[in-house]
Amino acid sequence: MKKKSLILAISVLLASCNHEAEQKEESSPRLAESKEMVTEMATISEDFKIEDIEVSSADIGDFPFLNLPTGLQAANVLEKNFDVCFFPLDGRMVPFEGRLYKANVVASQGEDYSKRYFEKSIEEYLLAIGAVKVFDGEITKEEYERYHRKDPNKGGAGDMGYWDQHIHFYVVRSKDNGNIYIQYTSNNAGGQLNILQETVFEQTITKITSDKIADDLAEKGKAILYINFDTEKSNLTAEGKEVVKEITAALHKDKSLKISIDGHTDNTGDATHNKRLSQDRAEAVVDHIILDGISQDRLIAKGFGSSNPLFSNDTEQNKAKNRRVELVKIN
């Protein structure tokens, strides 16, 4: 069976230039739910010890480590560089975190779907690479109602974990790729497949500082920032004002520095509106910098709307990258 490599690219951004829903403090119910999930993950080892599964030295290729058998294809694929997925342990859906692949499985054009063919193909391959079956059955309706509101990945690709689904759950402890969790289910019309490669979360959020801004301007001639504004307005939020203070500090340190403050949006909505909004926001940043004692003749405000994207606006992640403020050094 051939193995294919799926390359994932995803960025986590702090804020956006014209984000429809700016990040705010989570409500106490949401915080409680988050704490509950962390506690649940921390107690997994009481019921399931990954160390009890023998390490496999099989060459399993690249993520997601298996392709579909001939005559079947993936549809509505979901891929995340880091996320959570729930797997059944003794009938209880338990969250695991890592690199995630989820897909619906359907027949290729001109082929008929066979539940037996899909399940037998996956099972024999998993066993051949040293996977161990840890669950084979259904969860209760009560268990579904308990956990399903916590699952952020329901509603599209590879949905699994309903009380009327027969779930097959396997674990591979790969010598080269770490712990890998695979679950699948099927009926006579099609199947679902979930694969998670367990990884440790890496924090990528860092504080924007005047030194970093100055370094970027000196080395690249440009600094890309993500500044919070009120939704569909040019009013800076408290977080946005903190970022602007760092811009001002960089300008105070280098008295000769002049910059253009360029506002950018994604392509959502009316182009004329987006250009006007990006101009207003760039001017709002300039106004706050002037209030902090920087001369206006060192600053220019420009709004480009969606005309200069960094990435194609084909995903929400890429749109978030395009919603930005750029500081461009003026020579």
Rank of each mutant, 00 (worst) to 15 (best):
L8E: 13
G293Q: 09
K102H: 07
A107F: 07
D136E: 12
P29N: 02
A21Q: 11
A103W: 00
I224D: 15
E40G: 02
Q296H: 03
P95G: 02
G158A: 04
R281M: 10
G137P: 07
S28N: 12
D59I: 04
D216A: 06
T272C: 03
S27A: 08
K319W: 02
E20R: 13
D216Q: 13
K24S: 12
A32M: 07
E242N: 14
N267R: 10
K245L: 06
F63G: 11
G158M: 01
K133R: 12
F169H: 13
Q73P: 02
N322K: 04
V285Y: 09
K133H: 01
V171H: 05
S234Q: 04
K241W: 00
Y117N: 10
G263L: 03
Y144H: 08
Y162C: 05
K141W: 05
P29R: 01
D270V: 11
D59S: 14
A249H: 06
D280C: 09
I294A: 07
A128R: 15
S114L: 07
L14P: 08
K154V: 13
C85P: 00
R99E: 14
S28V: 06
V84Y: 06
V12M: 12
N313Y: 06
I53N: 09
L277R: 04
K207A: 06
P88A: 01
N177W: 13
I261N: 08
E54H: 05
E145L: 13
F201M: 09
D287R: 03
A282W: 11
T39V: 03
G61H: 10
G158T: 09
V132I: 05
F48N: 09
N274G: 04
A15E: 15
F229S: 04
S295L: 10
S121N: 13
I180Y: 07
A189W: 14
A284C: 06
A214K: 15
A282Y: 09
M93V: 06
Q317N: 13
V38A: 10
N331C: 00
I205D: 09
